[in-house]
């Protein structure tokens, strides 16, 4: 998806410094003051995590920090909301993974 550099009413976006960050091992380009969710979307990435139980892909839903769907791991810190967190230079972001369910396997076993 492209970035809206110009806007008929909101006008031109001010010059912003480009920065780079990592998502699931790949390098991406973002701009200063952009959230992780916005930067990834601008790079065509919608899936931010897999549901911990079912493994189904999930992306942003509310984009203002209410629904917790956009949680990713940032520099080792899990469950950070991508829609509220600003990208920093060299940030290492990982998508949320499906979890093994030890207790359930115990019950089935």
């Amino acid at each position: 998806m492209t970035r809206l550099l110009d806007h008929p009413i909101l006008g031109k976006l001010p010059e912003r410094k480009a920065i780079s960050f990592q998502f699931d091992g790949k390098n991406y380009e973002a701009y200063e003051n952009e959230t992780i969710a916005a930067a990834l979307l601008a790079n065509g990435v919608r899936t931010l995590r897999l549901h911990e139980e079912s493994g189904k892909p999930r992306g942003i839903y509310c984009n203002i920090g209410h629904c917790m769907e956009c949680r990713v791991t940032v520099n080792g810190q899990p469950n950070v909301r991508a829609c509220l967190t600003i990208v920093q230079q060299g940030m290492v972001v990982e998508s949320g993974k499906q979890l093994p369910n030890a207790i359930k396997r115990m019950e089935e076993g």
Partner: peptide, 8 residues
């Protein structure tokens, strides 16, 4: 019971 605690 999830992370959004019923907000959705």
């Amino acid at each position: 019971m999830g992370l959004c605690q019923g907000r959705t």
